[in-house]
Amino acid sequence: MMKPTGNDEYAGNWIADAMRDHQAPLVRYVARLVGNDLDRAQDVVQDAFLRLCQQPEGDVRGHVVEWLYTVCRNRAVDVVRKEGRMRSFAEGEVEQVRAGEDRPGRALEVEETRAAVLELIDQLPTNQQEVIRLKFQSGFSYKEISRITKLSVSNVGYLIHMAVKQLRADMAAQQP
């Protein structure tokens, strides 16, 4: 898993490096915020990199990744607001993310469990989904998530706790 810590050292072409590492995850994150519109998400992310180009390196060094997520999120919210695309970001997502091919034996089992987990995540309230993904997919700390989403740290903690509780209950219910 990519670890966007506060200590990324982008020597030389730091923007290209940031893009290589984070463009696709950002698109995935933004897509969920803008009603699963991948094309729109690509645009939002491209624009964020475009803006990154204008940042003096010293200003963003050390928190490039957090900066990118924050800018992308702000813009996604803006897009959604302007267009009234208040579609839940879970809609139609399940099929998309479970695109793994059949594999034999153990691999299949693991694949199935993962797919089931993803499906359960998709059933959470959207604000819980977002913080869960920021925490466990993007690897941000509560503090970083708080800055990205503008929620308080304790609110982030509460949402994650509620989501974890719900997921545990759901998974227990799925046990045969």
């Binding site: 923007i15 696709a24 897509a31 991948l38 695109a99 995540i121 466990f136 997919q137 545990r168 998974m171």
Partner: peptide, 25 residues
């Protein structure tokens, strides 16, 4: 809770990434 965190991490890490157009900067 910690165990679930691990499961979430691995499930989410395996999630497909969208294809992206490289941005030429």
């Amino acid at each position: 809770i910690r165990a679930l965190g691990g499961e979430l991490e691995s499930a989410l890490a395996a999630e497909t990434l969208p294809a992206t157009e490289p941005v030429n900067l």
